[in-house]
Amino acid sequence: MADVYRNRTRCRWSVRISGRVVGHRLGVVLIGVAFRASEVARLRCLRAGARDVHAWASGELADLPRPPGARRLRYRLTESGFRIEGRVVVRAAAAWFEADGTAWCEGGE
């Protein structure tokens, strides 16, 4: 199981396994994805202007091409949770984290 989050300093996706960062990649694919975000930490970042890791995706690393039907996944500090078209999602069958910093998923619920 791996965690993936955007490292804004390196402009890469950080990959964390068992709590330890094992690398930084331009692109990453996860399957069996759970999206996690700490609401308390999000509010603290808003209040203090701090930057910390409080939102990430967990799943199994994979090597799959992004299908044409994948939908854009977004996370914003000003809104709670990960969202697809304004709707909060907590799970997805697969997620693609692209080199340009965008994220896409398939089967979000």
Rank of each mutant, 00 (worst) to 15 (best):
R10G: 03
Y5E: 07
A57Y: 04
D63E: 14
F97T: 10
I31D: 10
G81H: 00
R42I: 07
D3Q: 15
L64E: 14
A50Q: 14
F35W: 00
G19T: 00
R10V: 04
A62C: 05
A103E: 13
V90E: 07
G86K: 00
A34W: 07
R87C: 04
R25S: 13
S38W: 05
R74H: 10
R6Q: 14
P67N: 05
R25A: 14
T102R: 14
A94H: 02
S14H: 08
W13R: 08
V4C: 03
H54L: 13
H54T: 04
P65L: 15
D52T: 12
Y5V: 04
S38N: 11
A41P: 07
R36I: 13
D63F: 08
W104D: 04
V40E: 13
D63L: 13
A103K: 13
R51L: 11
G86W: 00
S80T: 07
G81N: 02
V90A: 06
R72C: 05
W56C: 04
V89L: 05
V4M: 02
C45M: 14
A99Q: 10
R12F: 11
R76E: 06
E85S: 09
R36W: 10
G19Q: 01
N7F: 00
R42T: 08
C45Q: 15
L77F: 01
R6E: 08
G81P: 02
I17M: 01
V40P: 10
A34H: 15
H24C: 12
W96C: 09
V22S: 04
H54F: 14
F97L: 14
R16Q: 12
T78H: 12
